[in-house]
Each structure stands twice: as structure tokens, then as C-alpha cells.
Amino acid sequence: MARYLRLLAVQLRASTALALQYRLEFLGQGALALLWTGWSLVPLLVVFADRPGVAGWSFDEALVVMGWFTLMKGVLEGAVNPSLASVVEHIRKGTLDFVLLKPADAQFLVSTARFMPWRIVDVLAGLAIFGVAFHRMGRWPAPGAVAAALALLCCATLVLYSLWILVISAAFYLVKIDNLSYLFASIYDAARWPVDVFRGFFRVLFTFVIPLALLTSYPALALLGKLDLVVAAQALGGSVAFAVVSRFVWTRAIGKYTSASS
């Protein structure tokens, strides 16, 4: 365990050193991230322009969901995407051999290979949106609600990561799937809306199959102090189950890896 923590520290240090070389990029990306956050609020403003609520969510509550969306996007693009995107390349070129040869768990190594510390901008933007939303509501979340929200943040990160591992596992079978990450991003985009606006097929899809509800809506409800304990417990159990399944699929999929000739 201590060894893995040390490994994680090493990988983090390497990524940070790399990121520090591109400080100018940070400014550019930071400005862009802020611009996009503002831009992504526009549809929300239009939807709530002339009515107090949609599907039981007020504007301020939907804003909290948007805050989680922005924050999770930072987590996704800062900690999950960069490493796992390179795995697809490893599989295609056969260079995964070098990872597999190392005396540590392969899933751990590929998942911590690269971080993008600058993505912290998105996390800060998400926090700023929370600030605005709660300021407008004229109250602040209770400590218990914050604790619950943090617990769900861990669940959400776990689910996001597991989803990605499942996508990567598909690469062992399909090989050419660079655009799966694009598909993933396009589906994640739907998480910016409270899950209650979806009905029927989409509702089932986004709650159980691709648990977008767990990524943004449930943490938002927790922060608002509206999530009941049963749902929270189910979310916790669901995300752990998701992680177990993805680990199982990963170990099966990596057995299929045949390296590449030449």
C-alpha cells in the first residue's frame, strides 16, 4: 500500500513538473475554461428565462447541478482522461508491453500515468458556481450536507473512472477506438441537466446504465440537503459495484492483449 502511495506521489510530481513547463498554456487554458463555463450557462439561462422551475428544479438548484458538472469535468479532464487516453495508444502500438513488465499493478500504472494540474481551474469554477447559487438562495449548506456531498464526490469520481476503464477495456477487443473518448464526452455533456428532466428511456439509461445521475444530480441534491439516506446508500453501493465490475472486466480484457508485431 505504502509503495503504491509512493508511486502515486512520483507520478504526480512528474505530471506537475511537466505542467509547470507550460505556464503560458495555463493562462490560455484558464481563460478559455472560464469563458466556456460562462458560455455553458447560457442554455440554462434561456431554459429558466420565463418560468420558476423545470421538472421540480428551481434555477438556483439547477445551477448547483451545473456547478457539479463543471467540477466533475475538471476531475475528468485533469485526473482521468489524460492517463487513460494514452492507454488506447499503447494498445494500438503494442507499447503496453513496457507497462505490463513493470512490477506494479498495470491498472494502477496506466491510470496514474498523467495528470493535468491546470484543470484545477474547472474545479474552482465549479466552486464559484456553488457560491453564486447558494448566495442567491440566501443560505449556506449544512455541514452534514457538505460531508454527504463530499462522500458522493468520491462515488462520482469512482464511477467516472470505472466507466473509463470499461471504455479502455473495449479497446483490447476493438483496437481502433480513439473516438470512443469523444462519444464518452458527448454523453457526459448530458449530465449538466438535472436527471429529472429526462423521462422514460433516457431516465433509465442515465440512472442505471450510464449513471450520470450519480455524477451531478445526486451530489447536488446532497449539497442542497434534499437527498434521502436510502438513495445515498444505494449510490454508494452502486458505485462500489460499478468499480468491482470494471476491475473484473479489465482483468478479463487484458488477458486478450496480444501485443503488436513489429
Partner: peptide
């Protein structure tokens, strides 16, 4: 997705 959203609205 936008269709689902606007239908709800």
C-alpha cells in the same frame, strides 16, 4: 438530449 430537456420545459 436537448429534445428531452425542452420537452420537459
Amino acid at each position: 438530449v436537448m429534445l428531452a430537456l425542452w420537452s420537459a420545459v
